[in-house]
Structures are given as C-alpha cells and as structure tokens.
C-alpha cells in the first residue's frame, strides 16, 4: 500500500476507537473504571469533531482550487 496524504478523519476516528479499547483493557486489570456515561458523549463529540475538521479543511481546499483555476484562466 502506498502512502497517501494524511486522512484526518481516519486519524481522529482511529485514535478515539483505540483510546476506548485501551481504557477498557486497563480497567480489566486495575481498579480504573471508565464511566459508561461518558462513552457515548465522547464518541459523538470525537466523530462529530473529526467530521467538522474534515468539512472545514475540505472547504478551504475547494476554495484554493477555485482560486488557482481562476488565476490560470485570467493569465
């Protein structure tokens, strides 16, 4: 598999999922307990935030492409 430009959504979503897994694995062997009431809010905020970031960066990228094409046409 070739390396491609950073996929921010996959990065954030992967970190969130991996974070939950590590929290439960730690809790299985220690006295730490992840409060189940924060799982859903963290998941929503995390994935929603990742989607927002991608949306904003995608918007900026689209604007840069339009600006570049406008400059090319104007030359």
């Amino acid at each position: 598999m070739r390396k491609h430009p950073l996929d921010v959504f996959s990065l954030l979503a992967g970190l969130i999922v991996l974070g939950f897994a590590i929290a439960y694995l730690i809790g299985a062997y220690s006295s730490y307990r992840l409060d189940e009431r924060v799982v859903l809010p963290l998941l929503l905020v995390g994935l929603g935030g990742a989607g927002l970031i991608v949306a904003i960066t995608g918007q900026r990228r689209a604007h840069r492409l339009v600006a570049t094409s406008d400059e090319t046409i104007g030359d």
């Binding site: 996959s10 999922v17 991996l18």
Partner: peptide, 22 residues
C-alpha cells in the same frame, strides 16, 4: 471485545496514512 476494538482502532488509524479503512 476490547482486544477486537483495539485491532479495529489500529486499522482505522493506519488508514490515515496507508490504504483506506474508514
């Protein structure tokens, strides 16, 4: 299930640089 979740999370995370795994 936590081990399965960790493997899936690593797969999604790796997809940030290689391949696609969303």
């Amino acid at each position: 299930p936590a081990v399965a979740l960790a493997i899936l999370g690593l797969g999604i995370l790796a997809g940030a640089w290689f391949g696609r795994a969303r």
